[in-house]
Write a protein that binds this DNA or RNA. Sequence first.
DNA 1: ATATGCAATAAGCTTTACTAATGGATAGGC
DNA 2: GCCTATCCATTAGTAAAGCTTATTGCATAT
Lengths: 312, 312
Amino acid sequence: MLNVNRLRVLREVANQGSFSAAADALAYTQSAVSQQIAALEAEVGMTLLERRPRGVRLTAAGRTLVEHTEGILARLETAETELEELAGLRGGALRMASFPTAGATLMPLAIAKFRAKHPDVELTLAEGEPEEIAPRLQAGELDLALLFEFADASDPLAENLTRSESLTRVELLEDPLYLALPRKHPLARRKELRLEELHTEAWVQTSQLSPCATHVVRCCHAAGFEPNVSFESDDYQTVQGLVAAGVGVAFIPELALSVVREDILVRALAPAPPVRQVIVAVPSGGRLAPAAPAMLQILQEAAAGYKGRRSY
Amino acid sequence: MLNVNRLRVLREVANQGSFSAAADALAYTQSAVSQQIAALEAEVGMTLLERRPRGVRLTAAGRTLVEHTEGILARLETAETELEELAGLRGGALRMASFPTAGATLMPLAIAKFRAKHPDVELTLAEGEPEEIAPRLQAGELDLALLFEFADASDPLAENLTRSESLTRVELLEDPLYLALPRKHPLARRKELRLEELHTEAWVQTSQLSPCATHVVRCCHAAGFEPNVSFESDDYQTVQGLVAAGVGVAFIPELALSVVREDILVRALAPAPPVRQVIVAVPSGGRLAPAAPAMLQILQEAAAGYKGRRSY
DNA sequence: ATATGCAATAAGCTTTACTAATGGATAGGC
DNA sequence: GCCTATCCATTAGTAAAGCTTATTGCATAT
């Protein structure tokens, strides 16, 4: 049986008029295209493309094959479309919310992917802290939420979520916290730091009662000191600015480190860094939005792209 | 894009009613089928088959997909058929000839494969020694011939073939010669033998003037002795019988060893075994039969299956 | 209870398919 | 006429896909 993916390559070459252009269009290398076409020609035992100085042209055999390829690919698309209709991904909406950091990193990626795959589902995204979002999900105002919680802590939100019968939680990603220091800080030359070594520092934090701030304080207590909080901001770009200005040091989660200012340094905490668990929550059972599983899958793929790329 | 081969697996499962049966039909293992279906279901994000105690049944989504699959595969076949028509493999005939050993081994395999792929080409096969066949090919009585020649020798046939403008030769396979001994022969315990050690033996050979016999004699001369030929037969089953009966020892090419009698032993010759080169000859250029390239390709595949399975 | 038929999973290996790097041919600029 | 840009082919190395073997688990029939 002819390999349909190779046929798709052939069609692209025919459309573009050259191997190189087809390679660009398919996000392949020219070599890959050349090899696929060579394999296809070997398979059918004839030349499909006439090589000419400024590209290629279809032979009679090639033309025949491309015509059928159009039909085959069209039919494949029809099949996919029908499946989407069955799955309810044709029309409808998906109301989402996420905590701010993910809203700036994971979600845009996932939304772009989802749009490409299911252009007819209307997506909306709200931002908010976990403690605001969870109730709205339970109330049916949202279809899918991106939350976080601290695994070790007796986090009341986490308790609520795990117990709740009406919500399903899926662990998406572990987001470790790193320490941000001014570039000139004396401890900055070390690759790893122990929390105890920072007991004399001034701290920049997220706002007083937020789970992140609470957790930072708890960590410091565990390390035997009370953090001296000099400033608070819920925007990690601001936090980076404050650290750079020498106002203090700060914990910043990896997801908020997609952009790191030149004038600060990021260091891992030894032995084990504190971690916040990023989770997706959706209503259980019947109240699950048709598009939710598809979005969940895409989120998991996007999250996989974030794993194992810690550079600090 | 959905993977068409997976769709084909799905269709087979739907037709057969169970993974295991589909696996048999496709010459896969049950595991492979299970994995392909699992991958397909992950891809579309829904269950395609309902698992039931005595096999599986299609879900609505599965049914949709199978219907389109039928169309897609049908179109693929149409494409292949049209290509065959273009290549002239629709109708027409291919007149072949081969030397006897290949006629009993390689050719049946190749013919079966070719028939499956191009059922409308009428195949004929004659048997004969290279020296009879080559002239008939040149005369246009044949479209494709399987010959052999001895590489080291100043083989007049080989000379003729390489020089001839009207024939194209393709090297197909190297067919090494082994030594056959009666099971009780004193030298039989050794794994490899040197030709010199056999100068006192009686020999069973192919008929006097055949290229094989000539070559054996030449080898013996090179090893410094004149073989004492006690018997001649052109049928290697007969040769095996004569060796078993203790009439003498014999050279037998690997291709003739697909069946080896229990009461003889086969040994390799050290340091390098004599080899006969199996080649395919076809008329050059315009006189090439349309079906010849396809058959050549199939022969090469069949020959690849013979390589590297020497067990002696 | 046990055997049987079927699917899922794990681990290992082979094959396929891609990338990167390089070579060779041809047309067009200068 | 030579240089250079533009293409395709080829080779080697690597990552991913796909297959096999072996094992497990489940449900029904004996």
